[in-house]
Design a protein around this nucleic acid. Structure first.
Length: 457
RNA sequence: GUGGAUUUAGCUCAGUUGGUUAGAGCACGGGGUUGUGAUCCUCGGGGUCGCGGGUUCGAGUCCCGUAAUCCACCCCA
């Protein structure tokens, strides 16, 4: 064996079978849940024209992209996210799409950044968007889907939290209480960092942003409100804050929280004024999912961006969506013990033969793997089995059974001269270790019942 | 882009003040015990010690550079 001369590029991963199985596990859950909520899958090119990314984020983004020039002098970049592609696709066909458009995608994305915990240069990001539907119903719908995917992967309300906010509403509330219009950008900057800093850090932040005493008092009250759980009913700080807010603002906040409550998300979701999602393009509702223990970076984030489709040359269409990356998600699943040690596919049946010729085993294996159709050949009445066998020359049944057990099979079928002389084979249940001798024509039936039993266990 | 730590077999790790042909466990593969998953016995493959330079009679070991990994910072769509 020689030392590999090459290694995977910085910030990328190789997916050997165990890692690939974890990735499949995650992607399958995303896909399954998206479809269950009525979303359709789309994809686009892995690279787009560089200008597409400048439209939304300006020139400074280029340094964070993997970009290149093709032989026709076109400036291109590997996609750092899917949203521009989505917006482009919607803009191109906006006239003909039934509304609302509910799409999801599971693209590989690329960012030329310094790798660190939860952040690589190549990653997979589940994207979900509802386009053409304004209002809190769609907002709640995407948040619910985000939560549902995490539940589907085995996480519980003790593992993660979702915080939500509304940029428009909170702007009104700030303007009505202690922030002047000119100070809004500073206010959002401060809100974004409020929960990430300790007492001293916050004081330094207030000083750096030239906060007046009333501002500091308000920010500290907001900090307490979030720490107290973000529910008006049991947060005195939040009650005091909201008492001074315009009535329509508090009404909208209460209404949205009760919408979440009725979707069964009461424990999970909290109104969190500090979630502002840095990006300028969010126009209203924003939310973020994170580890309940406060470890790790954000699991998922999104919100409403009603001007986005216009920005990419389409009609004015309201939109709301979110993204969830595979890297942080996998770390969180592991941290909370929600990933099984072994997610590799397990065999249904392992076939062992100590016969001198291979024909009978080959025939049996082939039959078992093939699906059975009904008479019209319109419907599979019984799908084929996942069948494995040994490549070893040995006729040592003990060793072969060991291999059978390692394959994860529920049943082993043993073809040996003794039984075969009677037209029979042995079928061994690999879970309870019992075995029966059956006619070779009855094998399929015997195996089926063993597999059904073990699937229940 | 900046700083710290790390890098020896597929994995986890030993490797003495610099000294012969670099080791162990696990994993993997062959064989054995008269046809049942354990245990056991036996044999085997696999490393230019991350890469490149330097010091030295001699470098896995000391020095310099570089790459990657992990952690933190900047940034974060």
């Amino acid at each position: 064996m020689t030392t590999a001369a090459f290694q995977a590029p910085k910030g990328t991963r190789d997916f050997y079978p165990p890692e690939m199985a974890v990735r499949r596990h995650i992607e399958d859950a995303w896909r399954r849940i998206s479809i269950r909520h009525g979303f359709l899958e789309v994809d686009g090119p892995t690279f787009e024209s560089l200008d597409l990314y400048k439209v939304k984020s300006g020139d400074e983004i280029v340094s964070q992209l993997f970009s290149f020039t093709d032989r026709g002098e076109r400036d291109l970049a590997l996609r750092p996210e899917f949203t521009p592609t989505l917006a482009r696709m919607i803009a191109q066909r906006a006239a003909g799409l039934p509304r609302p458009v509910k799409w999801f995608s599971i693209p590989r994305c690329y960012r030329a950044e310094q790798p660190q915990k939860g952040r690589l240069r190549e990653f997979i990001q589940w994207n979900v968007d509802v386009v053409g539907e304004a209002g809190p119903r769609a907002d709640g719908e995407v948040l619910n889907l985000c939560a549902d995917a995490l539940f589907e992967l085995g996480l519980t309300t003790t593992d993660f939290r979702i915080g939500w906010n509304h940029r428009e509403l909170i702007t009104q509330a700030l303007l009505a209480t202690f922030v002047s219009a000119g100070r809004l950008p500073d206010a959002f900057y401060i809100l974004d960092r409020l929960q990430k800093l300790d007492d001293r850090g916050r004081r330094e932040l207030y000083a750096a942003r030239n906060c007046a005493p009333t501002e500091m008092t308000h920010y500290e009250m907001i900090h307490s409100a979030i720490a107290e759980g973000g529910r008006p009913d049991d947060s005195p700080s939040l009650q005091r804050l909201m008492a001074a807010w315009p009535q329509e603002v508090t009404a909208a906040i209460t209404a949205f929280q009760s919408r979440l409550d009725s979707m069964g998300l009461a424990e999970l979701c909290r109104f969190d004024i500090s979630i502002v999602r840095g990006l300028a393009y969010y126009t209203g509702f924003v939310f973020e999912a994170a580890d309940a223990r406060g470890d790790n970076r954000a699991l998922a984030g999104g919100g409403r961006y009603d001007r986005l489709i216009e920005t990419f040359g389409g009609p004015a269409l309201p939109a709301v969506g979110f993204g969830m990356g595979d890297v942080v998600l996998e770390i969180l699943l592991r941290d909370h013990g929600r990933l099984k040690d072994n997610l590799l596919p397990r065999a249904d049946i392992f076939v062992i033969s100590t016969l001198d010729t291979p024909d009978k085993a080959d025939r049996l294996i082939s039959d078992l793997r093939r699906s059975q159709w009904n008479q019209d050949h319109t419907l599979i009445v019984h799908p084929g089995y996942h069948v494995q066998t040994s490549y070893r020359a040995t006729k040592n049944i003990g060793k072969l059974l060991q291999e059978a057990a390692a394959s994860g099979a529920a049943a082993a079928i043993i073809l040996a001269p003794d039984e075969m002389s009677r037209g029979n084979v042995k079928v061994k249940n690999l879970f309870d270790r019992t075995e029966t001798e059956v006619s070779i024509t009855d094998v399929r039936q015997t195996v089926r019942s063993i597999i059904q039993m073990s699937a229940r266990a």
